[in-house]
């Protein structure tokens, strides 16, 4: 049930409790571990790197989830949650063992699902694609100097020599000398990863932000499906035999 709180004199609505976002967040099972009331002591804010630079407060995150004011929650869902650096300093030192960082994580998940994250995830296409098609999150190739101007001129120099440098470093370590991904995860492994994303509903969620990525992944899976499923069946049989 939604609940309105009015200013007793002007009778203007001051806050609305129990709106849509509030309910969605409270449904997540992590909330009961992340929020146990709040002493308003400020230990979290004192240690928070995001609070030092942004209009963001882990204490406010806890308080707003206790008060449930939809307007404040919406403001966070739309932008402020992306300020958190996920360093968990708030969780580490909270005397009530709350975790604003975990609440923020829950909210980020819901923001993606609810289609509020397009702007925040604008720079994420390549990483999401890499995870879903290569099985790991980073590749030496991604570190093009124009994408990382902060990293200075030496980075440009290293970037141009990376192939021979890696070859020298990883002599005798098959699978490590690659530049289009972090290491050469096998096709079967990538397929298993894709299955997990599909089965867990995570792939569908990716579709809310990067619809084309879902097509790429599904095509990729389809191409190798027969061979891979046969491998999985063999694994299942082996597991069943071991169980007996």
């Amino acid at each position: 049930m939604s609940e309105e709180v009015k200013n007793p004199i002007t009778e203007k609505i001051e806050s609305t409790k129990g709106g849509h976002f509030y309910k969605e967040i409270m449904k997540d099972f992590r909330i009961k571990e992340s929020l146990h009331g709040c002493l308003n002591c400020g230990t979290c804010v004192a240690n928070c790197p995001a609070a030092a630079f942004y209009d963001y407060s882990p204490r406010e995150v806890c308080q707003m989830m206790i008060e449930g004011d939809e307007e404040t929650i919406e403001e966070y869902m739309k932008s402020k949650i992306w300020n958190c650096a996920q360093c968990f300093s708030c969780k580490y030192r909270c005397p009530k063992e709350n975790s604003a960082a975990d609440i923020v994580m829950t909210m980020r998940e819901i923001a993606v699902r609810e289609g509020l994250a397009a702007e925040a995830l604008a720079g994420y296409t390549r990483i999401a694609k890499l995870v879903l098609t290569r099985g790991n999150q980073l590749a030496p190739d991604m570190l093009s100097p124009d994408a990382f101007p902060d990293w200075g001129p030496r980075m440009i120099e290293l970037s141009s020599k990376k192939m021979e440098m890696r070859e020298e470093l990883f002599k005798g370590f098959p699978g490590m000398n690659v530049v289009d991904r972090a290491w050469a995860a096998e096709d079967f492994t990538i397929y298993e990863m894709q299955r997990i994303w599909e089965e867990s509903g995570a792939l569908e969620k990716v579709g809310t932000v990067f619809p084309f990525l879902v097509d790429i992944v599904q095509d990729d899976m389809e191409d190798k499906k027969e061979e891979m499923e046969a491998k999985i069946e063999a694994k299942k049989a082996k597991l069943a035999a071991a169980g007996k």
């Binding site: 994580m105 994250a117 994420y124 999401a128 790991n136 050469a184 995860a185 492994t189 997990i196």
Partner: peptide
């Protein structure tokens, strides 16, 4: 192991893509 995948947690904490089951 070349059959190891990424834990995908960097992606998760940065973007909120993925979920706990995944």
């Amino acid at each position: 192991d070349m059959q190891q995948t990424s834990c995908t947690a960097w992606n998760y904490h940065a973007s909120g893509l993925g979920n706990l089951v995944q």
